[in-house]
Design a protein around this nucleic acid. Structure first.
Length: 243
DNA sequence: AATGTGCTCAACCGCAGTCTT
DNA sequence: TAAGACTGCGGTTGAGCACAT
């Protein structure tokens, strides 16, 4: 085989990422994208394996990560989707804009599972992340804007959290450019009008306990294929994909 | 104030599927 | 077609924090 041998772990750093490493990673991806994770750390000057870089980017440095606590609507969505899909966290995450599979997995194991199975949360902790007063002593967890603003201010001026912008940036690997998308704020989860009234199909069943929320709805067709629908801005149903 | 316990979450590990040569 | 490289996913772990005693 012509390819280089698999990840040589000797000398590669592990553990929490430093702000300097974050900056290197963001800076590199801004300029070159992330087509080859394995080669990326070397090219970016990082002593990390590609896997670690990918994880860091996907879970924390990506510009479209939604920060903050999970809303009750999001939690309900996770529960509903988990009923249908099981532990397919990446698919569940794809239905919750701005949330990562890792984050959802954590919330499920530490919070939602207990809410479903057992008695209410212990008296010691009544909310998950909401009760955390400070993250200061934790490993550095910067926002994308925090990292990228020190890299190239111009390219990230509209990133979430800055300038009260209503857009987030996303790297398009097809044409190696940044794309902007509307920010989905808290009201997205709580205001059904904003994202279009869900069709009757999700609310049908008169008085059923089925949660009504503006997420893609997972359905199974006659052939046994799962597919999902997303409620468009005008309330129309948009089929996204089969899986 | 000190200690113990439980919780959170960032990050790692290993596996499986896909891709490339 | 086979073999190895690469990517993505789910499970798990452990450091550090909050809260109770």
């Amino acid at each position: 085989m012509v390819r280089a041998p698999c990840c040589d772990k000797a000398g590669l750093k592990k553990g929490p990422w430093t702000p300097e490493e974050d900056e290197l990673l963001v800076s590199y991806i801004q300029k070159h994208g992330h087509e080859n994770w394995r080669a990326l750390p070397k090219l970016a000057g990082l002593l990390r394996c590609g896997k670690s870089c990918r994880l860091r980017w996907i879970n924390y440095l990506r510009p479209d990560i939604k920060r903050g606590n999970f809303t009750p609507e999001e939690e309900d969505a996770i529960i509903e989707l988990h009923k249908k899909l099981g532990n397919r966290w990446s698919i569940i995450a794809s239905k919750l804009p701005g949330r990562t599979d890792n984050e959802i997995k954590n919330v499920w194991h530490t919070h939602l599972k207990k809410r479903l199975n057992g008695p209410a949360l212990s008296s010691k902790r009544r909310s998950s992340s909401a009760s955390r007063k400070s993250q200061a002593a934790r490993p550095h967890r910067p926002s994308f804007s925090e990292v990228s603003s020190s890299v190239t201010e111009a390219s990230t001026a509209a990133v979430s959290g800055e300038n009260n912008s209503s857009e987030i940036m996303s790297w398009n690997t097809d044409d190696s450019s940044w794309e902007s998308f509307p920010i989905i704020d808290e009201s997205f989860w709580t205001d059904p009008v904003q994202s279009g009234e869900p069709s009757d199909s999700t609310a049908a069943g008169g008085g059923s306990e089925q949660t009504q929320f503006p997420f893609p709805d997972i359905l199974m067709d006659d052939m046994g294929f799962w597919y999902d629908l997303f409620i468009g801005a005008g309330g129309e149903m948009i089929e996204l994909s089969h899986f």
